[in-house]
């Protein structure tokens, strides 16, 4: 029961604030709602007992990337941006597409459990408390044993991006 309440609370919050991100006129409000969306997603991770993902989501996206977003938005002259036309012509198309996507998800959910018993939106299956206990260890184990080569490739890619950013940002190194 508590799992359902938390899931619908975080899920609803995520969807609602995601809508507000694209509909707010002020960029800083969009940024705040984006933070709320990311936090609600972190909450969803927590209801799935993915603690490590929860913490990393907050540290990286909220504490790191969104701070830089806010930093940039503050340097922009918001008064000018407020009076400029937004991309509003796409509004109805976007709404329609969003509804279609939502309907697809609902359909997939309702049909997906055909063989199983559960088709009740108020009684979703929940993760057992003990199922994913040593979360951080599991992720580390998988990353450094099973997927060590993709992991290292991704690291090198990030390193290249980092060096590239430094080269682009500084004239004299």
């Amino acid at each position: 029961m508590m799992d359902q309440i938390l899931f619908y609370f975080f899920g609803g919050l995520a969807v609602l604030s995601a809508v507000l991100v694209v509909t707010s006129r002020s960029a800083i409000y969009s940024a705040i709602f984006l933070i709320t969306t990311l936090l609600a997603t972190a909450g969803l991770y927590l209801t799935l007992r993915a603690e490590f993902l929860f913490a990393v989501q907050i540290i990286l996206y909220v504490g790191g990337i969104m701070v830089l977003f806010a930093f940039v938005i503050m340097l922009v002259n918001l008064d000018v941006a407020l009076h400029q036309a937004q991309f509003n012509r796409q509004r109805w198309v976007a709404t329609l597409l969003g509804l279609v996507l939502g309907a697809q998800l609902l359909l997939a959910f309702l049909l997906g459990h055909r063989d199983g018993a559960n088709r009740d939106l108020l009684n979703l299956p929940s993760v057992a408390v003990t199922q994913l206990e040593p979360n951080t260890q599991l992720i580390g184990d998988v990353l450094f044993n099973k997927y060590v080569i993709p992991f290292e490739i991704a690291s090198i890619l990030l390193l290249v991006a980092l060096v590239g950013a430094v080269v682009m940002g500084k004239k004299r190194i």
């Binding site: 929860f54 913490a55 806010a70 979360n135």
Partner: peptide, 25 residues
């Protein structure tokens, strides 16, 4: 007693900066 105790503290306290940034703005 969280499995990710230290990460939790670091994550939560890294959010405090928004109070400063948004308040200043």
């Amino acid at each position: 007693d969280l499995n990710i105790g230290l990460l939790f503290i670091v994550a939560i306290s890294s959010m405090g900066i928004f109070g400063i940034v948004l308040g200043g703005w």
